[in-house]
Write a protein that binds this DNA or RNA. Structure first.
Length: 645
RNA sequence: GCCGGUGUAGCUCAGUUGGUUAGAGCACGCGGCUCAUAUCCGCGUUGUCCGGGGUUCAAGUCCCUGCACCGGCACCA
């Protein structure tokens, strides 16, 4: 039986479209999946969407849609992005699917049967003003530290999972399986957490309909996190197809963001232990990709920008950047400057130029037909074998960036080899014919091997390079072990246009991207690029429910102990009111006084740092995340109270 | 304030379980080649590995501590 490999990524919330950070996770997982397939594993690569979130429910309601319909639209948005990035998942699961419902119901029942689910009450001090339970540490003399009021002792019915029961077994598992959670920094974090002890966790929510009912208490739904994790077994037939489940479970690898490793490396294994199921073999917590130095934000439309590199240059250069330039497991950064630098250095100057010069020489000197000289000792073969070995060792341990570096070592070695062997000199010397034959063959052979190594990252480009290097037969028949070995045999080299033309002007891709956005308006739709077509518009009536008004700042003062908040008193035309605004990073109180601003006048009140805020000041967010206040073109013309629309 | 992360060449970053003389790419300087997308190859310059203390035969790496910067939350709903 063929060895099998099952890997998953986190399923994504659908309340915003995918951004570079999400794409990073999928691309790296895709590279692993493609590498495994190349190695001959029967591979199952799962992705999907997480739809049972209250945010999703709310978002759908705001848009006037059935939640399911909203999720249908978002699924297409996600699939389109994944297609654009050449992400080759084998299955795409949604938590609203029947197979998922069955799996959740079955697993929760198994956990209940094991005695690990109990009905309890969540109780604690509840501060009404904060609308939150307050841990003891947040109480000062029994009062809420923020509101100075005595909180209420409240009990709320809930179903709990006996997570605490599994602490020792989890520790043992970590002990026995040092690579269960990678990288080590994540593992150490979890060990510390486990050593500190675990508390049982609430796994149900009452009063909600959007979710999967708890078998034992249909008035509750399974908490979205508990629900979501189960997708990994639901997708391979748990509760619906035993044979399929036996084939694929346990997963070989869960690729997840470092922020949710706890769920995957503690909660999820405990759930599986409770249900008597095998644990995933490994969890990998990858880092963040920042954009121009700042953290990706789901709410920033601009955050999808780097994905447009895939529109302009195809997915491969972006994929290479993400995999090669960011140490897997660490945080990384995407900037256009660096992207263009890497593109020119690695792709245009090195790999692309190498492919081109080899093909051109093959044709110029030998009409494209190359073959090794019988009995000749290849000079590049050892180097290639060493690279393949290092590449494989790195990739098997998910050290993707090291694998990439190894592959590029072979490219460097080939460029060096060409300089050393000087084919153009050999070509001028008739009695060195055999040397030229051998040299031309070797460089083509090295490029062929490099193209296989880089194929998981740049599938389209490398398929084309393999074709040019004389590969016959489909890529799917290439097998890593056999086909990365130094080969002989005659082959026909094919010429072609440069794969990666140099980006000449600094900032060209980023700038061109802006131009493209503007010119694609030719589709004469009014669609805003930054909002997915699937996010329908709010109605005019809905918009008019938001009361925007001009207000004039009368006074402003910092709020003690707060970094971002200012307490601002404004004149709304019909009186004064206090607004707490998170603008202290950009504005000092003095600069605000006398200024006309735009406020949301009918926003529900909120208490922030003990100050009641009655409204919201509108501000844009600059690329560094700092607020920039909206001001009026002619403040004198629109007195406080003027409606904004 | 709490939690987490980072600090290595001018810039962006690698540095395996502690182990010789601390690396790569870009940039810069010099030289070479002409098959190639003005590409490639060779040589070269720049380091208080943030500071201080400790463990060790040996510390960029481990421990303690200080500083700086970043992020998340507390608080921008």
């Amino acid at each position: 039986m063929m060895a099998r490999f099952y890997l998953t990524t986190a399923i994504d919330y659908v309340n915003s479209r995918p951004h570079l950070g999400t794409a990073y996770e999928k691309v790296t997982a895709d590279v692993i999946a493609r590498y495994r397939r190349l190695c001959g594993f029967s591979t199952h690569f799962l992705m999907g969407n997480d739809e049972h979130s209250q945010n999703v429910y709310q978002r759908a309601l705001e848009l006037g849609l059935e939640p399911r319909a909203y999720c249908d639209q978002m699924e297409q948005v996600f699939r389109d992005v994944w297609a654009k990035l050449a992400v080759s998942f084998d299955d795409f699961i949604r938590t609203t699917e029947e197979r998922h419902r069955v799996a959740v119901t079955t697993l929760v029942q198994r956990i209940a049967d094991a005695g690990d689910l109990y009905e309890g009450e969540y109780e604690g001090w509840y501060c009404v003003s904060c609308e939150a339970f307050k841990p003891d540490k947040d109480l000062v003399d029994g009062n809420c530290s923020i509101h100075q009021t005595r909180p209420e002792w409240i009990k709320e019915k809930n179903h709990f999972f006996r997570l605490s029961k599994y602490r020792d077994r989890l520790l043992q598992h970590y002990e026995a399986n040092p690579t269960f959670l990678q990288p080590d920094a994540r593992r150490n974090e979890m060990l510390r957490l486990l050593e500190g002890g675990l508390e049982d966790i609430s796994v149900s929510r009452t009063g909600q309909s959007w979710g999967i009912p708890l078998p034992s208490d249909p008035s509750s739904v399974v908490y979205v996190w508990f629900d979501a994790l189960i997708n990994y077994i639901a997708a391979v037939g748990y509760g619906t197809d035993d044979e399929r489940f036996r084939k694929w479970w346990p997963a070989d690898l869960h690729v997840v963001g470092k922020d949710i490793t706890r769920f995957h490396a503690v909660v999820w294994p405990a759930m599986l232990m409770s249900a008597g199921l095998a644990l995933p073999r490994r969890v990998f917590g990858h880092g963040w990709v920042n954009w121009q130095g700042q953290r990706m934000s789901k709410s920033l439309g601009t955050s999808v920008d780097p994905l447009d590199a895939a529109d302009r240059l195809g997915p491969d250069p972006l994929r290479l950047y993400l995999v090669k330039e960011i140490a897997y497991g660490h945080d990384g950064d995407f900037t256009w400057e660096r992207f263009e630098e890497r593109y020119n250095a690695d792709l245009a100057n090195n790999f692309g130029n190498l492919v081109n010069r080899v093909a051109v020489m093959a044709h110029k000197y030998r009409g494209g037909r190359l073959a090794p000289v019988p009995g000749a000792t290849p000079q590049l073969a050892d180097r290639a074998a060493d690279v393949v070995r290092r590449y494989q060792a790195a990739m098997d341990e998910y050290q993707l960036h090291i694998g990439m570096a190894a592959a590029f070592d072979l490219i460097d070695a080939t460029n060096e080899f060409i300089t050393r062997s000087e084919p153009w000199v050999l070509a001028r010397t008739p009695d060195r014919r055999a040397e030229l034959d051998q040299a031309l063959f070797e460089m083509a052979e090295a490029v062929r091997i490099a193209a296989i190594l880089l194929w998981p990252v740049m599938p389209a480009s490398c398929t084309e390079i393999l074709r040019r290097m004389g590969q016959v037969g489909p890529i799917s028949e290439i097998r890593f072990d056999r086909d990365t070995a130094w080969a002989g045999g005659e082959r026909q080299i094919v010429k072609g246009p440069p794969l990666w033309p140099r980006i000449e002007a600094p900032g060209a891709v980023a700038a061109a991207r802006g131009g493209v956005t503007a010119s694609t308006g030719a589709g004469d739709t009014m669609t805003d690029e930054t909002e997915p077509a699937a996010a329908p518009r709010v109605s005019f009536d809905d918009f008019m429910r938001i009361e925007l008004r001009v207000a004039k700042v009368l006074a402003a003062e910092p709020i003690p102990k707060s970094k971002k908040l200012l307490k601002v008193t404004v004149d709304t035309g019909s009186g004064e009111r206090t607004i707490v605004a998170g603008i202290a990073r950009s504005y000092t109180p003095e600069t605000l006084i006398g200024r006309s601003v735009v406020i949301v006048a009918n926003l529900e009140t909120a208490k922030l740092m003990g100050v009641e805020s009655n409204g919201m000041m509108l501000a844009a967010t600059d690329p560094d995340g700092r607020p920039v206040l909206l001001t009026l073109d002619d403040p004198a013309a629109a007195p406080p109270g003027s409606r904004v629309r």
